[in-house]
Lab assay of single mutants.
Amino acid sequence: ATNIVGKVKWYNSTKNFGFIEQDNGGKDVFVHKSAVDAAGLHSLEEGQDVIFDLEEKQGKAYAVNLRIK
């Protein structure tokens, strides 16, 4: 899925991951530091509006192509 809109539920910059809540009511999506770095960001803030693509690997969904809304 592409261009999914959501809000950062939480992001832990020490542990380098967090979760994004989808605006469409879907399951929360894992986001890793690598996606944050690829977006040219240092971190994510709770409540921040983002747009992302959804990829699945080994049955787990995660956010890629992250951008600030």
Results as ranks from 00 to 15, higher is better:
A35C: 04
A63M: 02
V8L: 04
A1G: 15
S34Y: 10
A63Q: 00
S43A: 13
I4F: 06
N24T: 12
D53N: 07
A39K: 05
G26N: 11
V29A: 07
S13D: 12
A39I: 07
N24V: 12
T14V: 11
V50N: 00
L41Q: 12
A1K: 09
V50T: 05
D53F: 03
G47K: 14
K69M: 04
A1R: 06
G26L: 08
A39N: 05
T14S: 10
E45A: 13
D23T: 15
A35R: 05
N65A: 08
N16G: 13
I4K: 11
V29C: 04
A35G: 04
H42S: 10
K69L: 07
D37G: 12
Q48I: 13
T14K: 10
G6K: 00
D23F: 15
A38L: 10
G26R: 13
F17E: 02
K69N: 08
F19P: 00
L41P: 03
V50S: 01
A38F: 07
K7E: 03
T2I: 14
N3L: 05
A1N: 11
F52V: 05
Q48S: 11
V64H: 09
K9S: 05
N16P: 02
V50K: 00
F17K: 02
D53C: 03
N12G: 04
R67K: 10
G18C: 02
G6F: 01
S34T: 13
K27A: 10
N3S: 06
Y11H: 01
L41H: 10
D23A: 15
T14I: 12
L54H: 07
V8H: 00
L41G: 07
L44K: 01
K33L: 05
D28F: 06
Q22Y: 15
L54K: 13
K57M: 11
I20R: 00
I51K: 14
Y11C: 02
A38W: 07
G6D: 00
A1C: 04
N12F: 08
K7W: 13
V29P: 01
E46C: 05
N12C: 06
W10R: 05
E56C: 04
A35S: 14
G18A: 02
A63D: 00
I4Q: 12
G47L: 05
L44Y: 02
I51M: 08
K9C: 03
Q22D: 06
Y62K: 12
